[in-house]
Design a protein around this nucleic acid. Sequence first.
DNA 1: CATTGACCTCAACCTTACCTGAGGTTTTAT
DNA 2: ATAAAACCTCAGGTAAGGTTGAGGTCAATG
Lengths: 148, 148
Amino acid sequence: MTKRTKKSGLPQELSVGDVARRSGVTVSTLHFYETKGLVSGYRNAGNQRRYPRSILRRVAVIRIAQRAGLSLSEIREALETLPDGRQPTIRDWRRMSGAWRDALQDRIENLLKLRDQLDLCIGCGCLSLTDCPLRNPGDIKGKSEEIT
Amino acid sequence: MTKRTKKSGLPQELSVGDVARRSGVTVSTLHFYETKGLVSGYRNAGNQRRYPRSILRRVAVIRIAQRAGLSLSEIREALETLPDGRQPTIRDWRRMSGAWRDALQDRIENLLKLRDQLDLCIGCGCLSLTDCPLRNPGDIKGKSEEIT
DNA sequence: CATTGACCTCAACCTTACCTGAGGTTTTAT
DNA sequence: ATAAAACCTCAGGTAAGGTTGAGGTCAATG
């Protein structure tokens, strides 16, 4: 563990290992995120990565966004909207997570639609190429041929 | 197009190209599915793939299961439960799609939980390592440290 | 002050789900 | 009969999201 300050008992700067332990991602994942422009830090005299404590929020935000179904590049884009490269504040977090909530909602609605179609089609079992909504997600009517 | 029988106007056996056109997957995907044990057919005298019409239902089932979030190997396992390697009937389809519907339902419920947590935490913005449900998906209580 | 654990870089590898192209054969249509 | 379209195999590539290992340096501890 990176050395602790006397007063707070909390390290003011974190090593990769510290961040890994406390954020639940591995060191190699942090390296990887760095190559993808998702996280950044500075280097100490010995070329080792050091991070401000705000990296923890940043990593947390990344993981939550991933769970919501965003790709790392989408997440990077969102994080890049932060003015002057600062770490996300609570206000930033609210803005981003609001957008992500909406994307998540869309995803959920698609899955609900699929589920309802499954419910219908489990009953009918037809899987008709042209009439079954499961076969025909875009509601495209083509020439009529059954599949079985 | 593979030659059609005089009577029905429908080919009794299908080439890869036929299947590709009618199932909406590419020829290379069919080759790929074959290497993964998801589909199979026989070969004609000239070593070309020929499929029974039931391949179309099979491919349809595969694509629907993928949309529901199953991996190809999970789908293969499900298809392997079919007795004596026959193609899925409507009854089989009901059994499998019922199971998949339940898996889909689980997925949806997880996403709904995430959405509700986002709704809560967009308000609070804390992202507390130990108290925020978003940071702590498994409800694991650890030692208490805030992240910011 | 030596050792041991933590770090460093870089390249290579992994998994999933395919796609692309080369080089050659078969089928179908004219 | 011949040309075009479709098919074949096999190797290698792509994208995402990482992991692993080699070879070498740095830093915390007895």
